[in-house]
Design a protein around this nucleic acid. Structure first.
Length: 273
DNA sequence: ACGTGTACCTGCACGC
DNA sequence: TGCGTGCAGGTACACG
């Protein structure tokens, strides 16, 4: 489900409510998501305080006072939200986190493509899931120059290229689609055919669409909700994603849908070349 | 070595 | 109503 803006929105809302709080109890309602969850969580984290809540790529990182960190990924259908401890359990409520002061956080993930792991805070960057990741798109090191140079080495379609976390993290199906629309580039173009000026436009478009989505609290299609189970608003601003057969806001042509690497892509056949 | 296809899993909307 | 099909904000891995 969530791409960078959705995870960033969760992080921003979790931070002020969790930092400094002790984790009282961790309850696992099953033993695995996409991979087995650590079975020693209560022993390792029970009684520890939350020092920080961070995001790297689409991973949410929770640092605790004993130098351990939780790594959480929401996959396609994961939700992380505060609720009442008394609320009855949904079939797919897999993890319950009770913090001091009665704060109760739940992880719900019907498809179980999510991940929950524990690692030492110091070694988090070396973790198998994180070590190979490319730059954060909203940071300075993700520049037009960086993008252009990397593009020149790849014969993959530009959309697939953008969704490859080795090149840049956090850009999933929605935002790759939208950034390409904003920069007038057809998603099927080979990355190595992108011109210098296009890479500048594309780099800007990626930063813009991600930044605006964060401001809108993310995009909600079906599963995503924030920590208070409220949807985001960015779906109201999409230009291409999920708009097959509707008219382009720029030129009134019909938006097309194609499949690339098994995922839907949407583009305007007139404005994107 | 890189790019694509497949697997993981459930739920929902659709057409017949 | 019921069933089959196709689709869904992700990612690691096996293959060619």
């Amino acid at each position: 489900m969530p791409e960078l803006p959705e995870v960033e929105s969760l992080k921003l809302k979790l931070k002020p409510r969790l930092i400094g709080k002790r984790l009282v109890r961790v309850t696992l309602k099953r033993k695995d998501l996409r991979v087995p969850m650590p079975q020693n969580l209560q022993k390792n984290l029970g009684g520890e305080r939350v020092i920080n809540v961070r995001r790297r790529s689409k991973y949410l990182l929770m640092d605790f006072s004993n130098q351990h960190s939780l790594i959480l990924h929401l996959g396609m259908s994961g939700r992380l939200f505060f609720t009442s401890k008394q609320r009855s359990l949904d079939t797919h409520d897999h993890v319950l986190l009770d913090f001091e002061g009665g704060l109760h956080l739940r992880l719900r993930d019907p498809r179980r493509f999510g991940v929950l792991l524990l690692t030492s805070t110091a070694k988090i960057g070396e973790h198998k899931l994180l070590h190979h990741l490319g730059p954060e798109p909203l940071e300075k090191d993700f520049s037009a120059n960086y993008l252009f140079k990397l593009c020149q080495k790849s014969r993959a379609p530009i959309k697939n290229f953008l969704m490859n976390a080795k090149h840049v993290v956090g850009v999933g199906n929605i935002y790759a689609t939208e950034a390409l629309f904003l920069s007038n580039i057809r998603p099927t173009r080979m990355a190595c055919q992108i011109k210098k000026h296009e890479s500048e436009k594309l780099c800007q478009a990626i930063k813009k669409v991600l930044g605006e989505s964060i401001k809108s609290g993310g995009t909600t299609f079906r599963d995503y909700v924030d920590v208070d189970e409220k949807p985001g608003l960015h779906q109201l601003k999409l230009n291409a994603y999920a708009r097959e057969g509707e008219t382009c806001f720029r030129c009134q042509s019909f938006i097309k849908r194609i499949i690339q690497a098994g995922r839907s892509s949407f583009y305007c056949p007139e404005c994107q070349t």
